[in-house]
Design a protein around this nucleic acid. Structure first.
Lengths: 343, 343
DNA sequence: TTGTATGCGTTATCAT
DNA sequence: ATGATAACGCATACAA
């Protein structure tokens, strides 16, 4: 209740309740070895004194931090405009909170930084487990983690990238199928895609899936890689629309590029969806707010975060985790896609 | 270099280099009390063994965690679509990383949760300092922090809300002036505003500033409060446009609502900016991607995060911090604002 | 059931 | 300059 001027330790509680420190420890941790009456007494005194276990001492004694590590790649614009990371953090945070864990966040400027943060966490035991995001093809971090099996790690990526590490996998290939099928059913036979940076693992996965699915359906397909910014998205759109025959539908890897594309179309007098169908891979508020509303592939990233958190807690408990699937993508059809124009 | 199967402690380093543990501690912390030769020897051995200080032990011994606490309010949709929080985290993380600090993140579902997280951090010493965001009028957290002066805290809010606590302040009133003046100079004499939730401190500050500035200029002004979603923004826009005389300009408290407003205008056949000027308070990629581009009040939130971090580090060092101003807002004029229509 | 004593890995104090 | 040794605060094996 009252504010403490100085730190109150387990010994203060012991003294105040007339028992020993171990009795206090047992009582407060709900362990056997102490009578109900003294337990009640201790609990009350502890509450009165406002005692809580010192985090560092607790961590040191039981070699557990109750922290999960997350490394963010420094790219403020991308982080801000992509709802992905913040949604994931929301899910992680919500689930961890229930289990009395915290999220420890560090920022890496490049991949060397990221390696050294991982090494730091492994050596200092500052986290009980960590998350591996944005994996690239043949990512060296996987080898790094395999050399340090004492640090539980969960990769969030396509299972083909994680070499047997515990993985939370999204089925991007299935999502590609959903998207292409939607356009195919509307009669589109010439579609294009404006993707993110080529070196990202998920870009690669999607690239492959798009090539395969479109080839299978006999649909003409081409892809331009960008840096995810609306400017790049707009430029790519202009380029795609200037070739002959121009695609009748374009799928964008994120929302701002799709939004920018609607602007380009309006400027060029290209009607959406009559002349051109537009889809976005992500699905944030932006797709709903846009005019026309943007058809998008939606997935529950917050829930994915919750699942990721619970999987890491399982790993910390020593349980095995193999490959777990994220909630599947769903197609949210809005007004930006329609029947392919007559040739 | 080689992966360690078991924890390597300071004693291992001491033994391997033939000195005592305290010599190792001195050597590795760059403190005097050890010869240059043994220092070099120790450093090399430590590197070879891959030794790093155990975080918990270090925290316990020096009563410092090298962590800064951040409490996020659980609202996945809002967090995801508002670039604010992620940008702030980017800035915080970047600055903290340079100083070898980490960000400890927890999620609160309501204000009671938040209070208990604060009390937890105060009692367990799990962070060296913490950030206070989203202050409301007469926020009880301020009193809570004042009762625990041993925990450094920085409030990010208008200085009028923080009752003398160390504060990183944004000059929202000045921004209101920028926005209204911009519209006034374009001839607008009847403007409206679609704001966020009324109970938020910054909504209140902006409300007051808008009332004052518009009264001063003799501009007609009204305001609708919403929950920040594009749906609510669209509804508010329709309501505002249905009254007579309808405002010739509307300012939105965030980007998605402004974007949704452009959609409403298009649907109603209201031309932007010829018939209606639209402005947004935030300025994300969305404003640039929208069509027409949305005139917005821009501020460098990443930089604000860096400043916040450095201020907290000063507080941890025992330095005094009073009220520091964020980088000022700037008006980014795009195509969504133009001369007021003739009456 | 209760109390004593030791370990956890550092840092820092004190003799040497 | 160097090496024992005592905190730091908690958990726990062991003794009473």
């Amino acid at each position: 209740m009252a504010a403490q001027k100085t730190k109150v330790t387990i010994f203060d509680v012991a003294k105040a309740s007339g028992v020993s420190s171990s009795a206090v420890s047992y009582a407060l941790n709900g362990k056997p070895g102490v009578s109900d009456t003294t337990r009640a007494k201790v609990l009350q005194v502890a509450r009165e004194l406002g005692w809580k276990p010192n985090g560092a001492a607790q961590s040191l004694a039981q070699a557990k931090t109750r922290r999960i590590g997350l490394i963010l790649s420094y790219d403020p614009q991308l982080l801000a405009v992509e709802p992905y990371m913040m949604s994931l953090i929301s899910g992680l945070g919500a689930e961890l909170e229930e289990k009395d864990y915290s999220l420890l966040v560090r920022m890496s400027m490049d991949s060397d930084d990221e390696d050294s943060i991982i090494e730091d966490w492994v050596a200092t035991s500052n986290v009980d487990a960590m998350l591996l995001l944005n994996l690239e093809i043949g990512d060296p971090r996987i080898e790094l983690m395999k050399q340090n099996p004492q640090m539980p790690v969960l990769a969030v990526a396509d299972a083909s990238l994680t070499a047997g590490l515990p993985t939370l996998a999204s089925d991007d290939a299935a999502a590609v199928g959903l998207a292409v099928r939607h356009l195919y059913d509307l009669g589109h036979r010439n579609i294009a895609r404006v993707a993110g940076p080529e070196e990202l693992g998920h870009s690669y996965i999607r690239d492959a899936a798009f090539s395969e699915v479109t080839a299978e359906l006999g649909v003409r397909y081409r892809c331009l890689h960008t840096d995810y910014t609306p400017t790049a998205g707009a430029d790519a759109t202009k380029r795609l629309l200037s070739v002959n025959p121009a695609p009748t539908a374009i799928i964008y890897d994120n929302d701002v590029m799709a939004l920018a594309a609607e602007g380009v179309a309006a400027t060029l007098g290209v009607k959406v969806p009559e002349d051109l169908s537009i889809m976005s891979w992500d699905d944030s508020f932006m797709c709903e707010a846009a005019h026309p509303g943007i058809t998008a592939l939606n997935r529950d990233i917050v829930e994915a975060g919750r699942i990721a958190a619970s999987l890491m807690l399982k790993l910390i408990d020593g349980d095995d985790v193999d490959v777990v699937e994220e909630p599947p993508y769903e197609l949210r059809v809005r007004d930006s896609t329609g029947p392919a124009p007559e040739r």
